[in-house]
Computed example of a mutant assay.
Amino acid sequence: MDKFTVLEGVAAPLKIINVDTDMIIPKQYLKTIKRTGLGKGLFSEQRYKDDGSENPDFVLNKPAYRNAKILVAGDNFGCGSSREHAPWALLDFGIRCVISTSFGDIFYNNCFKNGILPIRVTHDELEKLFDDADRGSNATLTVDLTKQEIRGPDGGTVKFEIDPHRKHCLLNGLDDIGLTMEKKTSIDTYETKAKELMPWL
Rank of each mutant, 00 (worst) to 15 (best):
I106T: 08
I106A: 07
Y108H: 15
N109S: 08
N109F: 00
N110D: 02
C111Q: 07
C111D: 04
F112W: 01
K113V: 00
K113S: 04
K113D: 08
N114F: 00
N114W: 01
G115H: 06
I116V: 08
L117N: 06
I119H: 10
I119K: 11
R120F: 03
R120K: 15
V121T: 07
T122N: 05
T122W: 02
H123I: 04
H123M: 12
H123D: 14
H123V: 06
H123G: 11
D124E: 12
E125C: 01
E125M: 03
L126H: 04
L126C: 03
K128F: 00
K128W: 01
L129R: 09
L129A: 01
L129Q: 05
F130N: 08
D131C: 03
D131N: 09
D131R: 02
D132L: 03
D132V: 04
R135T: 09
G136M: 10
G136V: 09
G136S: 12
G136R: 10
S137I: 13
N138I: 00
N138L: 08
A139M: 05
A139Q: 10
T140S: 14
L141V: 02
T142Y: 12
T142K: 15
T142H: 12
V143S: 13
D144Y: 07
L145H: 08
T146A: 13
K147S: 07
K147P: 01
Q148I: 01
Q148N: 11
E149P: 15
E149Q: 15
E149H: 13
I150L: 10
I150P: 14
R151W: 04
R151P: 13
G152K: 11
G152R: 14
G152S: 11
D154F: 00
G155I: 00
G155T: 06
G155F: 03
G156D: 06
G156N: 09
